[in-house]
Amino acid sequence: MRVMVFVKATKDSEEGIKPTAEFRQMLEDMGKYNEELVKAGIMLAGDGLKPSSQGKRVAFDGPGRTVIDGPFAETRELVAGFWLWEAKDMDEAVAWVKRCPNPMPGPSEIEIRPLYEMADLEADLGV
């Protein structure tokens, strides 16, 4: 089962990189964790995202398109980074997330969402 694992944004991540000893240690710990994921055959892709102030959104309304400049409100709803994993099942994905070093200074959250596979779509759509 493929899952997308989202590191949720925090006030700190939205402020951008801070070259502190704590931040350097967090990067080192996360690098070691990513190596474990790769060696275990779990990690397919992953990366950190720049703050939403450097992003854009495109809103759709029928044929109309509106570009919205960041930063975006509700930091707790934003994503600061992601992994794409191949896990046996959701339990395995949860077990790997529990092993993750805290990805942010202070409290943080990681969300796990399964991806649709072709078999899911075929079953749901009767294809």
Rank of each mutant, 00 (worst) to 15 (best):
R99Y: 07
P63E: 14
G81K: 00
N102W: 01
A45P: 04
E28Y: 10
G48N: 11
D47V: 07
L125C: 11
L37P: 03
F23D: 02
A40S: 15
T10D: 01
V79A: 05
Q25W: 00
K98A: 10
M118N: 12
T66P: 00
V38K: 15
I112W: 07
S53A: 15
L121Y: 13
L27V: 13
E35M: 12
T66D: 07
E77F: 07
K32C: 06
G16M: 10
K88G: 07
G106I: 08
I112D: 05
G31S: 12
E92C: 05
D12I: 02
E92F: 03
S53G: 15
I110A: 04
V38I: 15
A40G: 07
D29A: 14
W83L: 03
G106C: 08
F72D: 01
L37K: 07
G106E: 09
A93H: 02
E111H: 13
L115H: 12
I110R: 02
E28D: 14
F72Q: 00
V127W: 15
P51C: 08
V3E: 02
V79P: 00
E122G: 06
E86Q: 14
T66S: 09
L44P: 03
F82P: 00
E109P: 04
G41L: 06
I68E: 10
W96A: 02
K11W: 01
G48H: 06
K56M: 12
L44R: 11
F23Q: 04
V127S: 12
L49W: 08
P105H: 02
E36F: 08
W85Q: 01
M104Y: 00
I112M: 09
G16Q: 04
E86T: 09
A95V: 08
R113H: 13
S13F: 02
P103K: 00
R76W: 03
M1V: 06
K56S: 14
V58F: 03
K39Q: 12
D91N: 15
K50N: 14
A9V: 02
G106K: 10
E22W: 02
K98N: 14
D124G: 15
L49H: 09
G126A: 12
R57C: 05
T75A: 01
S53H: 10
T66A: 10
R76E: 13
P63D: 13
R2G: 00
P114S: 12
G55Y: 07
S52I: 03
D47C: 13
R99M: 09
P51K: 06
Q25T: 07
K88T: 14
G81S: 05
F23T: 05
S108I: 02
D61I: 09
D61G: 10
L44V: 14
R99S: 07
E14G: 02
V38Y: 11
D29L: 05
D69R: 04
G62N: 10
D47H: 12
P107V: 09
K32Y: 06
T66K: 14
D12W: 00
C100E: 05
V38L: 13
E15S: 13
R76C: 01
N102A: 11
A40M: 11
K50D: 11
A21V: 09
K11L: 11
A93Y: 00
L37V: 08
A119W: 08
D29S: 12
A80E: 00
G70S: 08
S108F: 01
Q54K: 15
L27T: 04
V7S: 00
E111M: 13
P107W: 03
E77C: 02
E74V: 04
A73D: 09
R113A: 12
